[in-house]
């Protein structure tokens, strides 16, 4: 195969675009991890629910696409807070993270994943639904043409990251989120309503996943089983970037996206999904704490 610089550039651009989506799902996982000391294994299903809700808003109700994203985010946040309050709270109260109760938390996450998937089967069935969104002609960038959905995805994801970062770094509530993430007892002593902030963190993480679902929808199609692979990729992204590190999650996502696209383009397209985990294994061998592992140690 002749080397063609333009197609390499195109693969990288597509890789980055899909990568920022992995990044925002990973961001949610990382946020929940640093806030609650749990790895949320049902996050892929929240992403799937987000995609279906977005589809519902956009196709059935007929609201414009950007509002479908916002609607899905709000709904997923409420769903997440409900799940956290009703199911996870009992377990995290017994101690999350590395304790025996934390093990129960992992099992509970998997159970929630299965339960949510089956609820989705009941509501939407097993068939893949197309998510047609008319965004106009592809963007021409030299010889490369980029579909508008990719452009929108990159823009919206970046916007979400910037807003989240501003919220965490510069607002009073963001300060509380960081305090709760680092040490809940001290956060209590500062007068912070810790359970409420935990709900907020969980809702925020789920809203990010839902946004990713609605963004990916038009590129692929929406189906009940879509969450599983996304969870795995986002997980890989979070680990590559350094678990618990927010900038790490984004960079990890972009790396996974590029790696996967280049692998599919130059090695073998039929094994597209393997490359993310290849990268994961490489990072774990050479830098087990992830690329931003040092930052990950001082959480958030």
């Amino acid at each position: 195969m002749d080397f063609d610089f333009n197609s390499l550039l195109a693969f990288i651009i597509f890789g980055v675009t899909i990568g920022v989506v992995y990044g925002i799902v990973a961001l949610g996982i990382s946020l929940i991890y640093s806030g609650l000391d749990i790895v949320h294994f049902a996050h892929g299903e929240i992403y799937m629910f987000g995609a279906f809700i977005g589809l519902f808003f956009s196709q059935v109700i007929g609201v414009p696409y950007p509002f479908a994203i916002i609607g899905a985010m709000i709904f997923a946040a409420l769903l997440g807070m409900f799940i956290e309050r009703v199911f996870y709270r009992r377990l995290t109260q017994a101690g999350g993270g590395y304790t025996v109760a934390g093990m129960g938390m992992i099992i509970c996450g998997f159970g929630m994943s299965v339960a949510l998937m089956n609820v989705a089967y009941l509501i939407w069935g097993a068939a893949a639904e197309p998510f047609p969104v008319d965004l106009g002609m592809p963007l021409q960038l030299g010889d490369i043409s980029i579909p508008q959905s990719y452009v929108l995805t990159a823009v919206v994801s970046m916007l979400l990251m910037v807003v989240l970062n501003y919220f965490i770094r510069n607002t009073k509530l963001g300060l509380a989120v960081r305090a709760v993430a680092h040490n809940k007892d001290i956060a209590y002593l500062m007068g912070i309503n810790v359970p409420l902030v935990i709900s907020l963190i969980f809702g925020l993480g789920c809203a990010l996943a839902a946004a990713a679902g609605v963004l990916i929808g038009p590129m692929q199609s929406v189906q009940v089983e879509m969450g599983y692979l996304m969870l795995m990729k986002a997980f890989a992204a979070a680990v590559v970037g350094g678990f618990g590190s927010l900038p790490g999650a984004l960079i990890g996502g972009i790396l996974v996206g590029i790696f996967e696209n280049l692998g599919a383009a130059y090695i073998s397209p039929s094994h597209k999904d393997i490359y993310a985990f290849l990268l994961l294994i490489l990072v774990l061998i050479f830098r087990p704490s992830g690329l931003f592992g040092v930052i990950a140690k001082v959480k958030a």
Binding site: L175, R178, A179, H182, N183, I186, V298, K299, A300
Partner: peptide, 9 residues
Amino acid sequence: QSKEAYPAM
């Protein structure tokens, strides 16, 4: 106790 400030802030 003194060790319990938030070191990353």
